[in-house]
Simulated scan of single mutants.
Amino acid sequence: MKPSLHPQEEERLTELRRYGILDTEREKDFDELVEIASEICETPVSVVNFIDEGRQWFKAEVGLGVRSTPIETSLCGHVILQGDFVEIPDTLRDERMADNPLCTSEPGFRFYAGAVLKGANGLPLGTLCVLDNKPRTLTDRQRKILMVLSKHVMRELNLRIALEDERVLRREVDHRVKNSLASIGAMLSMKARRTSHEALKLELDDASTRIRSLASLHAELHELEAGGHIDLKSLFERVQADLRYLIPESATLSIEVDAFEATPQLANALLLIVNEFVSNSVKHGAKDGIGAITVHINGGAGSWSIVCRDNGKATKLDAERAMSKSGLGTRVIHSLANSLSANAEWEATGDGMELRVAPQHN
Rank of each mutant, 00 (worst) to 15 (best):
D310K: 09
E237S: 13
E223R: 10
F236V: 03
R244G: 13
C308F: 10
E320T: 06
E276D: 11
G302R: 03
A319Y: 05
G327I: 01
G300Q: 02
T315W: 07
H222S: 11
G228I: 10
L328H: 07
L266M: 09
S281I: 01
S281K: 03
R331D: 01
L243G: 09
I230P: 00
P264A: 09
E256L: 00
A226F: 05
L328R: 05
N268R: 14
V332W: 00
F277N: 00
V257D: 05
E223I: 03
V239L: 07
E225Q: 13
I247L: 08
G299N: 06
A251N: 10
L328Y: 09
L221G: 02
N275H: 14
G291H: 10
S324M: 04
I255Y: 02
A301V: 08
S281H: 01
A269N: 14
H222E: 10
E320K: 11
G285F: 09
L235E: 13
S250R: 15
E261R: 12
L224K: 08
N298Q: 08
D242L: 03
N275P: 04
A286T: 14
M323E: 11
L224H: 07
A259C: 12
I293V: 13
I247Q: 03
V295G: 00
C308I: 09
A241N: 08
A267N: 01
L232N: 05
A251L: 07
N280H: 00
E320A: 15
I230K: 03
S279N: 07
L328G: 03
G302E: 05
E223W: 01
H222V: 05
A262H: 07
A319P: 04
I297R: 08
L253W: 01
L246T: 05
A219S: 15
L243H: 11
H222Y: 03
G289I: 11
T315I: 09
L232Y: 07
H296L: 08
V332D: 02
T315H: 07
N268H: 15
K316I: 10
H222N: 02
L232E: 08
T330V: 11
I297V: 15
V332I: 15
D310F: 10
R331K: 15
I293P: 00
R244V: 05
I290Y: 13
A286K: 09
G299W: 06
E320L: 12
L317H: 11
D288Q: 15
